[in-house]
Design a protein around this nucleic acid. Structure first.
Length: 156
DNA sequence: GCCAACGTTGGC
DNA sequence: GCCAACGTTGGC
């Protein structure tokens, strides 16, 4: 199977690209949306991931990560003390999954959402759809490549 | 802080 | 199966 491309959202107050860079890799727990979960289960080791900062100033793509471990049960869902707890999830019958992602690259500056919206080449991208809240989403290779080109950009 | 868009829940 | 109520996401 050909390599695929993705985008994940994170609030930098919760987990930022800087922290991923410092830690090298992290588990992507807490996804509690079925569509997002299904996409996570399609992720393959080595797939590239745009790292998006939501609820940030400015919101935008902060860099690149990669899948380093494919989907496995999210044990936080089985922990009653966790804010990610779900009584419908158990170790025998897991409902929620997570992947591990590794740091690849941080853009010199966050590539702001308004700039992306002004790019005709990115037309049709899920991120730019009005009302889109999907926190894990596939990205077309052409869109991925274009975002990376912009992100590396002429800045700095 | 506001609120539009969306997903989930539960009564019927 | 419908849909109102509610909770969450996330831009602005």
């Amino acid at each position: 199977m050909a390599k695929r491309y993705w985008l994940v959202k994170s609030e930098p107050d919760v987990y930022s690209i800087d922290r991923l860079e410092a830690e090298g890799s992290t588990s992507w727990e807490g996804v509690r949306n079925y569509q997002a979960r299904n996409f996570m289960q399609e992720m393959k080791k080595g797939d590239r991931v745009l790292f998006y900062h939501s609820n940030a100033e400015p919101p935008g793509v902060a860099g690149i990560a990669e899948v380093v471990r494919e989907a496995y049960p999210d044990h936080h869902a089985a922990d009653p003390k966790s804010k990610y707890h779900d009584p419908g999830h158990s170790e025998e019958k897991p409902r929620w999954f997570m992947v591990d992602v590794g740091f690849v690259e941080r853009f010199p500056e966050v590539l702001p959402l308004p700039l992306l919206k002004g790019e005709p080449a990115l037309e049709g991208m899920e991120l730019l759809r009005k009302g889109s809240r999907l926190s894990v989403q596939p990205v077309a290779k052409e869109h991925f490549d274009h975002v990376v080109k912009l992100g590396r950009g002429k800045r700095r």
